[in-house]
Design a protein around this nucleic acid. Structure first.
Length: 571
DNA sequence: GCCGTTTTCGGCCCGACTGTTTTCAGTCG
């Protein structure tokens, strides 16, 4: 899939350049195509061999030609020429908040700056405010954007802000002036990483609520403040938007601010076609301006002839079409999940005993957990050799005898060695209930080597699941290259499952691959990879990914109860 | 440049906030 990201980056770049040049519609077309390519679960190189690139939505003749050129030569002549024609550094400047194409071009042209660093110098020397149409405030804002850019331009893990999200909503909801409060935006859609936090409030007294919002204890700065919409930055650099509407616009505002942008564009277009106008305040008849909906969200969808769409699906990945033909999936929920299929204990690098993990699971009302400590190759994690694993098996048997209404599955997270063999012999694997095969080394190998390695591992009859397939660490490490088609084909034919690793910086498989795996008839398992009892709370993040990947309960093995899963695994 | 139940031309989502300017362009979501 390396070629896909290369193509999508080039298309993004072209889109931005066209925006700088003022050709906004062409820009939009390229950006749209770029996003489309980025979300494809098929490899472009392979796709091109079998079909016409123009069969991809948002890709027409022109862009197909450019994609072909990039696949063949690594770049596009048009892109290179356009880059030449722009002053150096314009695109870099656009990374700053509040600096769009127009501003970036003027700054680059008129100040001759080519980097953010040079722009900072110019701002400190007071040269920006001398430009026509610029003043003190613009200069100060640019300086502040540069600060933010330098200190933290990374996104936040969804798993890292969840408590905070709740706390802010509760803080606002405690005011009598707040009639309703809800998280919207990418957090409501449960995206794996988020850029900011969006909160929607219904109130008849927006001024007072805004006051309360902008005086939240850990606010660092107020970026904008109006009667309907304000933005603050918290001391941890997280940006929080508050939007206030009246109760009769609650549903349309919820719909609008949940996004995604692409989803909303599609929904609005349907509204327009049916003779409506949809905005955050309501659904209106275009001709008369009469308001016909807005109080609740599902009503908006139903007036447009659509089933209500779960927020996690709102990415314009076919959900609007499915809602129109009443064929949306019935998504898995957290309560469907009966067990956690990947936890560590103090037998390897976890901090809890088997008993601690069991107690936590029981508090979560789960029926089972699979103890999957590391195997011996992972010496740094005190991985288990055959002898210690046998002791652990005995220990688990002993504990299971005393447990009622709960089962501990005997498992292992067994290292897959570089030749694809497993780290422990079959004569001990056969005595386990559940084997997760994972790669923890050799991340720099080629796509072919990694693919072969995984396929070889799946030939082992005791491997139930492949753990954290792509090895990515969100915001830290890219996934290693893999031929997913080959891997999923092998997994489907061998009946091997794919893990959704629910640890916040893994979430691997991701949503897109989940959907692809589902299409390949592969069953998924969800495991938190918890190394401490409380980390089992990450289970909900795994379910979020599954939901974003269009999975239903039947696609996930942990929706079976303890008896069923034991039958399925070793029956 | 893409797209089509208004289909090969003429649209392309729509509104809030800011800054600097007297009526609006730029940016963002």
């Amino acid at each position: 899939m390396v070629s896909n990201s290369k193509v999508s980056e080039a298309l993004f770049e072209l889109g931005e350049i066209f925006a700088i040049k003022g050709d906004l519609f062409r820009s939009r077309a390229f950006l749209k195509a770029a996003r489309r390519i980025a979300s494809l679960s098929i490899d472009l190189q392979e796709y091109r061999r079998e079909s016409d690139l123009t069969s991809i939505p948002d890709v027409g003749k022109g862009i197909a030609k450019i994609i072909g050129e990039i696949l063949d030569t690594g770049t596009s002549v048009e892109l290179e020429e356009l880059k030449e024609s722009l002053p150096q550094g314009v695109r870099e400047l656009m990374q700053l908040e509040g600096v769009g194409p127009k501003l970036a071009l003027r700054l680059a042209r008129e100040l001759g700056v080519t980097t953010i660093e040079e722009l900072e110098t110019a701002a400190r020397e007071g040269r920006i405010k001398l430009l026509k149409g610029f003043g003190e405030k613009t200069e100060a804002n640019i300086l502040r954007s540069i600060e933010v850019f330098k200190s933290s331009r990374e996104r936040f893990l969804l798993g890292a802000i969840l408590g905070l999200e709740r706390a802010i909503v509760d803080y606002l909801a405690a005011s009598e002036e707040v009639l309703k409060a809800e998280i919207v935006g990418s957090v409501r859609r449960r995206k794996e990483t988020i850029g900011d936090l969006d909160i929607l409030v219904a109130s008849n007294n927006p001024e007072e609520v805004m006051e309360r919002f902008t005086s939240i204890p850990n606010v660092d700065s107020i970026l904008s403040k109006g009667s309907r919409k304000s933005t603050i930055r918290l001391s941890n650099n997280l940006k929080v938007d508050l939007l206030i509407v009246s109760l009769d616009s609650w549903g349309s505002a919820l719909q609008y601010f949940t996004g995604s942008k692409e989803h909303n564009v599609k929904v609005r277009r349907i509204a327009a076609k049916k003779g409506f106008k949809l905005n955050e305040y309501g659904l209106y008849l275009r001709e008369t301006g009469q308001k016909i909906g807005g109080e609740n969200e599902s009503e908006i969808y139903s007036l447009l002839g659509l089933d209500w769409i779960e927020p996690e699906l709102r990415e314009d990945h076919g959900e609007v079409e499915a809602a129109s033909s009443h064929s949306l999936p019935k998504l898995i929920t957290l309560t469907d999940v009966k067990g956690d299929l990947h936890v560590h204990t103090d037998w390897s690098d976890g901090v809890g005993s088997i008993q601690d993990m069991v107690e936590k699971a029981r508090r979560m009302r789960l029926e089972y957990i699979a103890i999957c400590d590391h195997s011996k190759s992972l010496a740094i994690a005190r991985g288990l050799d055959e002898e210690r694993l046998r002791s652990q098996i005995t220990e688990i048997d002993r504990l299971n005898e005393r447990l009622e209404g709960f089962v501990i599955l005997k498992g292992i997270e067994c290292d897959i060695k570089s030749d694809g063999r497993l780290d422990l012999p079959n004569n001990v694997l056969k005595d386990l209930d559940y084997v997760v095969g994972s790669i923890h080394s050799g991340f720099k190998s080629s796509e072919e080597e990694m693919t072969d390695r995984l396929i070889a591992a799946m030939q082992n009859e005791y491997v139930d699941t492949i753990g954290h397939l792509t090895g990515r660490l969100l915001l830290k490490r890219q996934p290693y290259p893999l031929n997913l088609d080959k891997i999923f084909e092998a997994a489907a034919s061998r009946g091997v499952m794919m893990e959704i690793n629910a640890f916040p910086d893994r979430l691997d498989l991701n949503d897109i691959y989940c959907r692809k795996a589902k299409g390949a008839n592969i069953t998924m398992s969800i495991g938190t990879d918890a190394h401490a009892p409380n980390q089992m709370d990450f289970l909900s993040l795994g379910v979020d990914v599954a939901r974003r990947g269009w999975l239903e309960a039947v696609n996930v093995i942990n929706t079976l109860n303890a008896k069923e899963i034991l039958n399925r695994l070793r029956g």
